[in-house]
Design a protein around this nucleic acid. Sequence first.
RNA 1: CGGGGCGUAGCUCAGCCCGGUUAGAGCGCGGCGUUUGGGACGCCGAGGCCGGAGGUUCGAAUCCUCUCGCCCCGACCA
Length: 480
Amino acid sequence: MAEGVTPRSEDYSRWYQDIIREAELADYGPVRGTMVIRPYGYAIWENIQKALDRRFKATGHRNAYFPMFIPYSFIEKEKAHVEGFSPELALVTIGGGKELEEPLVVRPTSETIINYMFAKWVQSYRDLPLLINQWANVVRWEMRTRPFLRTLEFLWQEGHTAHATYEDAEEEALRMIELYRDFAENEGAVPVVVGRKSRIERFAGALHTYTMEAMMGDKKALQAGTSHNLGQNFAKAFGIQFLDENNELQYAWQTSWGVSTRFVGAVIMVHGDDQGLRLPPRLAPIQVVIVPIWRKDAEREAVEQAAHRICEQLENAGIRVHLDDRAEHTPGWKFNFWEMKGVPVRIEIGPRDVAKGAFVLARRDMPGKEGKTFDHPIEEAAARVGALLNEIQRNLLEQARTFRDANIHDVRTYDELREVIAAGGWALGYWAGSDDDERRVKEETGATLRCFPFEQPGEPGTCLMTGREANEVAIFAKAY
RNA sequence: CGGGGCGUAGCUCAGCCCGGUUAGAGCGCGGCGUUUGGGACGCCGAGGCCGGAGGUUCGAAUCCUCUCGCCCCGACCA
């Protein structure tokens, strides 16, 4: 086991905190519930940003930036919205030493201010669709905080779009949750269940909320991204109107969707083990670390020369590589250090390898010796490493999916649901219960209705709670 | 907001019960030397208003009161 890290099996919450500290992802800020994202953690976020932003651009969205301060009156304009958010608002009441006439809200999300602006920009059906994204920080005064998963301030992207018809907005909301799924699985190697939120769980002010739910290493669910069809609720509150082809005034149909720094937490908890982080190659700030090994100064030069040659080859191939040639640490120490940091591939090269013109590959997704292969020719470094990175990316997703599928259980009755939840798994069963039935499950088991998965059996069944005919299955789980 | 825990060196903590030398350890940090294929070792060294304010006492890290902060667990939430 790694030094300074509580084993996952002993105390998962402690393990999570230990990993964040030891891998230097983040540190606690001076204000309760705040955190500093350290360079290594931020580099992961930057890779998440790049992967998402590329996809947003490819689907026609453009980035913009809206102010952090929102007039309090804006928040009050949409009834469900204000009810949803008012408990967790941070208000600014003094500015420049003077009491403000109207308090300012530090944005908990930007629907209101963005839609205020949209109302100015949208006049005609020709202005639609309006497809905007912003990268920003938001503030929600949470009671219970955890690094990355829930902090008073967090970073995210929030997409906001306006469309001419309900169908267009619905299509957009679905397109974006699918985009998120593709991102989560193909970049983060995080398998997700995509589906629709229940009335109770959906976003304050939305018609439909779509979600992707991921299973963490302790089998708790994490909402890793959401996409909302907002209908015309905000358009009506903010007067976003346009003239259609028939010269008739219509309210716009809207969506919003977001993924946050919480996703970093998902990557930690889906892949991490008792040795530390395990990063999917596509999000890893460093994909390959080279550890040169030598005893005597006489050996040093030849080894480091070979190490540099490999390093250069990998760089030229576009691989993010780091050569750890520090003299103050032993190879063994470096192995542990970079394993803690979750670097997917390690190259070891010592005198014996140099003599053969070869190097050793060690993969982070397999423990110890099992993950080591020998005698890779130096000239083939780029090809060998490239292939291994792809293999690791694939394998991490596979491992996570196997774990998840083994812990989702079909249930037919409420008793079965209780059993599954008590054992810590996810319960999948037919559901046609009321809002109160859903609340009862939460009260009695601690589990919430995570979503009605898009993937359905295709035939009706019997509701586990009411015994009535149900058209859909739902997933219940304890969640972060 | 309830319940629990913790504030002593950069970090993790001991010391506190039962007040009394110059406040300690491990890790980390700096220097020198030996080392380096899975967390090396020796020697030397730097580093503390013991969270804050009151009080008790000849004397407080230690006892009392108040306060501030952080963490964990629960109720609300991306």
